[in-house]
Every structure is written in structure tokens, then in C-alpha cells.
């Protein structure tokens, strides 16, 4: 019997301008972030993969100059980062009532 295959890892070779997508939505950003890194040293020292910078569907998290930046204004409020941060290092709340993304269709 053959061993189980790993997940298909073929490269997508797709270029996407995510800003074009996010620009479509209606936003009411709050003044303060509803997201925060609990311990920045964990991102820097214990998290080589920086998975949140990849799987976040709004690219809220970006690793720049040795620290994690959080573009909370474009957050789609899905909750994936809270659940999938390998270190449970994201303090996640909903934005205050009436703030954040406001969908018209879906």
C-alpha cells in the first residue's frame, strides 16, 4: 500500500490585487484596533511561518521591519486569525457596534 499523499502543493501562479477587492466594500473603521498581538516577542522569536500573513483573507497582518503590523481597518471579521494563530497570540474582538465592514449583499 502506498503512503497517504500530502496535500497537493502545486503553485497557483496567480497575482491578485487584494486592495481592488477590499475597495469594493463599505467600511466604517473605528479609531482603535479591535485586533492586537498579545506578545510581540512570540511573533518575532517563535513563529517562523507567520501563517497569519498568508491565510488572512484581507491581508490584515504584515511582517515589516521585525514587527507585525495590523491593518484592522480592512478586517472582514471572519475570526480565522484568532483560531489559526499557531500560538494563540491574537487578541480578537468584534469591532464596536456599528463599526467595521458593512455588507450590502451576500
Amino acid at each position: 500500500m502506498k503512503s497517504e499523499p500530502a496535500i497537493n502543493n502545486k503553485p497557483l501562479n496567480i497575482e491578485v490585487n487584494l486592495d481592488d477587492k477590499l475597495f469594493l466594500n463599505r467600511w466604517k473603521p473605528d479609531e482603535d484596533s479591535h485586533l492586537a498581538i498579545i506578545d510581540p516577542s512570540v511573533c518575532a522569536g517563535k513563529c517562523p511561518g507567520k501563517d497569519c500573513t498568508v491565510f488572512c483573507p484581507a491581508k490584515v497582518y504584515e511582517w515589516r521591519n521585525g514587527r507585525m503590523t495590523i491593518g484592522y481597518e480592512g478586517c472582514l471579521e471572519c475570526g480565522a486569525c484568532r483560531i489559526a494563530c499557531p500560538h494563540g497570540n491574537i487578541r480578537w474582538r468584534y469591532p464596536r457596534g456599528g463599526y467595521g465592514v458593512q455588507f450590502r449583499l451576500a
Binding site: 496535500i7 497557483l12 496567480i14 491578485v16 501563517d51
Partner: peptide
């Protein structure tokens, strides 16, 4: 309108290092 979307287990999206919006464009 046409709704077009794609979803997969969060564990596998993370493991496979997929950017979800790239998967949608794919």
C-alpha cells in the same frame, strides 16, 4: 449577480499556505 466562492478547512488552508483570495482568482 453571480456569487462565486471557495472554502476549505482552516487547518488545511494554513498548512497548505494558501492565500484565500488567490485561490478565489484561481
Amino acid at each position: 449577480h453571480i456569487s462565486i466562492g471557495v472554502g476549505a478547512l482552516l487547518s488545511q488552508i494554513r498548512q497548505r499556505k494558501v492565500r484565500p483570495y488567490e485561490l478565489l482568482e484561481y
